[in-house]
Simulated assay, not measured.
Amino acid sequence: MPPPPLQYEVIDPASQRGRVKLADDQGFTYTLYRSNDVTTTWRCSVRNKRETCLARVKQNNNDNTFIAGPQPHCHQPVPGASTALKVIADVKRKATRSIFRSAPSIVSEVLAEKCDGGPIDALPCIDHLARTANRKRQQMRRPHPRNLDFDIDNTFVADGFMRRDIRVRERRHLLFALPLMITLLAQTTRWYLDSTFKVVRAPFIQLFSVHAFVQSDGYIKQVPLAFAPMSGKNR
Rank of each mutant, 00 (worst) to 15 (best):
P119Q: 12
I120D: 11
D121V: 09
C125P: 02
D127T: 03
A130W: 00
N134T: 12
R135V: 11
R135C: 12
K136Q: 15
R137D: 05
Q139N: 08
Q139R: 12
Q139G: 09
M140A: 15
R141P: 15
P143Y: 10
H144N: 12
P145N: 12
R146F: 12
R146K: 14
L148K: 01
I152W: 09
I152H: 09
N154I: 10
N154P: 03
T155F: 02
V157S: 04
V157A: 06
A158Q: 14
D159N: 09
M162H: 00
M162Q: 02
R163T: 03
R163P: 00
R163G: 00
R164H: 08
I166G: 05
V168D: 11
E170M: 08
E170P: 06
R171I: 04
R172Y: 02
H173S: 06
H173V: 02
L174Q: 04
L174C: 06
F176K: 01
F176Y: 08
F176G: 00
A177W: 00
P179R: 01
M181D: 03
M181E: 08
A186V: 09
A186P: 08
A186L: 13
Q187R: 14
T188A: 04
T188S: 07
T188G: 01
T189N: 04
R190Q: 13
R190P: 00
W191T: 05
L193Y: 15
L193E: 07
S195Q: 13
T196D: 05
V199M: 13
V199N: 12
V200R: 07
R201M: 13
R201L: 14
A202K: 10
P203E: 15
F204E: 00
I205A: 12
F208V: 02
F208G: 02
S209P: 03
S209D: 08
S209R: 10
S209N: 07
H211Q: 10
V214Q: 03
Q215L: 07
Q215N: 10
Q215E: 11
S216T: 11
S216K: 13
D217P: 01
D217T: 09
G218R: 06
G218I: 10
Y219E: 04
I220M: 11
Q222K: 10
F227S: 04
M230C: 14
S231G: 08
G232Y: 05
K233F: 05
K233L: 07
N234T: 11
R235V: 12
